[in-house]
Design a protein around this nucleic acid. Structure first.
Lengths: 190, 190, 190, 190
DNA sequence: TATGAATGAGATTTCATTCAT
DNA sequence: TATGAATGAAATCTCATTCAT
């Protein structure tokens, strides 16, 4: 008996990521995903129930990955601003290092292909950040508004800036990263 | 008859808008778009070259519509903050009134289906806002940063908030609208 | 606009009939059914919802056809035996003339592919025969047993005999037809 | 180990029987047959050359089983009618006790999946019955017609009655069994 | 012997687009 | 202009069978 080869699973997810980014969901056929992964189309269905399942799985795993990277060197007791800056920069660095993963997640944010369950699961990986914001609010450092608004004004703009960079309209260099963080901070600080 | 034409064209664009929002690009077949518009599939091709063209056309027209609404009552000479607040509120009001158009545009922001030409054309409709921001910068009221950053931190968060509202996580009521505008303004003001 | 071509529908049903008879349900692919009908695979779905629907439709139409042939020259008031003999011979003649239709119906009798609705609908086309049997029973000519038994011992043996003939084991010539009818009649007559 | 082998083989044949009855040939995949038998798909091919072989083997074994049961307590010299009644009742009892085997055999009667060789082999198991009928003919008790006709009018109706019972249209209780036998006997007796 | 992984070939069905009127 | 029929190409997914252990 052969043992199930997890490399194939990984290859499939990578292949999906690349193709969806390049062409969009509607133009990423299973056959090509398989081919690029060096695998038979039938093999996909050993790992995933169907296309939707594969996309959702990929989404959740990338969110998990983002979460892991976001909290590197972060300690729960840190001063609020310092902690947030660390996390924000971690996220930024990770997204810049993995532009495909980043773009995929952005694309997912607005497609009905991702179901509510995956979305919720994905969100959980940023839980410590939400906790930090709440502490900031109780310490009177961050505006006492919905965390959705805090999220909207600190993290979502980054997706737009990455797109702009991809289209050569903007550069996320060190200086601009600092400006971006500050803009977000100014938006939410008391 | 020009009128009859335009009714069908309009019906088709509306039908597209509705179906894409409901199911996503990948699940909005031409036949169904036609059916919902009360028109034959073949008729689509009298007005549009192909599906991509139809989507792009819709995108540009919605952007134009957004532009028209954005600048209602706006006068070029207005004080910067006052002018920006007016425009921002116009946009917010319009998007809240037309959530489908709004969601469609958001979905378009991240799909390879929209080509560069349409994107540029779409952007042009907000030109007066960019001019206003630039004046704000030269008057020392707005941070002297890339307009992409200014855009990112004042307008893109709204998409996320609308999504959140759709998912019942957040409410864009009068008070929260004020908070949202302020957050954006705090992000970019000097 | 082209008008819907019912020849294609007929060609498809004929093609299905032939292929299913030759190879069985499980080996009659839609693509080949289409090809043999001189039509694109997609065209099938203009006329039928799916494969199951096509098979069931064919089944019901063949049953209807059988019914039409069964009652040629039959008049409701006829003497029971005379009427039954007429109908039985009509059916026999029809099945011998259309061995493919006959074999298809026999194949259908034992497959879960045919749903209950189609089965009931198919049965209805022999209603006048059932009525005749019932009259025979009330006249004391036919055994007062379930019509299912009457049917079993007069009509189903014919399927077996046709198969046997196909396999060159038996010949349904005029004389044997007479014997067959008599065997059935002996089985059910009082 | 021979024993272990045979358990798996038996489990596979039982699993096939059950699944084919439930869904039909076209919807009984090897993987599921294996799973229901608690065995790997690959194991099937240790016992059978391929799917067709497995089905045919099952068919022949069930026919053998039917034969064994048919002639319980039968002695070759018995009076013709008495002997036939014994055999007929044996078959009926067996089929009622094993409705799945019975239904499978009925389904096989009309599918091209069963090849000529298996059919012939299957028939052989009823040889003593054919001999009995022939004796009956030479004794002038049974009509001097083809054994195919005799078979058709005594045994095949039973399949239809069993189906009818399965669909709750008919009940094969003791009384109706007697009626059924008599109908068959009336059909063939001189 | 026995397995679960793996697959190539192919099944059904869909869809953007064109045809014929 | 407008249509519904028609389709070729392709999409998703399945399945009998083989592989590697």
């Amino acid at each position: 008996m052969r043992t199930k080869n997890n490399n194939k699973r990984t290859a499939l997810l990578n292949s999906t990521l690349a193709l969806v980014n390049e062409r969009g969901f509607q133009a990423a056929p299973m056959s090509e995903i398989a081919k690029n992964a060096g695998v038979s189309p039938a093999t996909i269905y050993l790992f995933f129930k169907n296309k939707e399942d594969m996309i959702n799985t990929l989404y959740v795993e990338l969110k998990a990955n983002l979460g892991i990277n976001a909290f590197k060197e972060y300690k729960v007791g840190m001063p609020v601003k310092e902690g947030f800056e660390l996390i924000w920069n971690n996220i930024a660095r990770y997204r810049l290092k993995e532009p495909n993963e980043s773009a995929f997640l952005t694309q997912c944010d607005n497609t009905p292909m991702i179901n509510e369950k995956s979305r919720l699961e994905g969100t959980e990986y940023l839980r410590p950040l939400f906790d930090l914001w709440q502490r900031g609010q109780s310490e009177g450092i961050i505006k006492p508004l919905s965390l959705y608004l805090i999220y909207a004004y600190t993290l979502t703009p980054f997706s737009f800036l990455m797109q702009s960079q991809k289209r050569k309209k903007y550069s996320l260099n060190t200086e601009n990263l600092k400006h971006a963080f500050e803009a977000g901070w100014d938006a939410i600080k008391v």
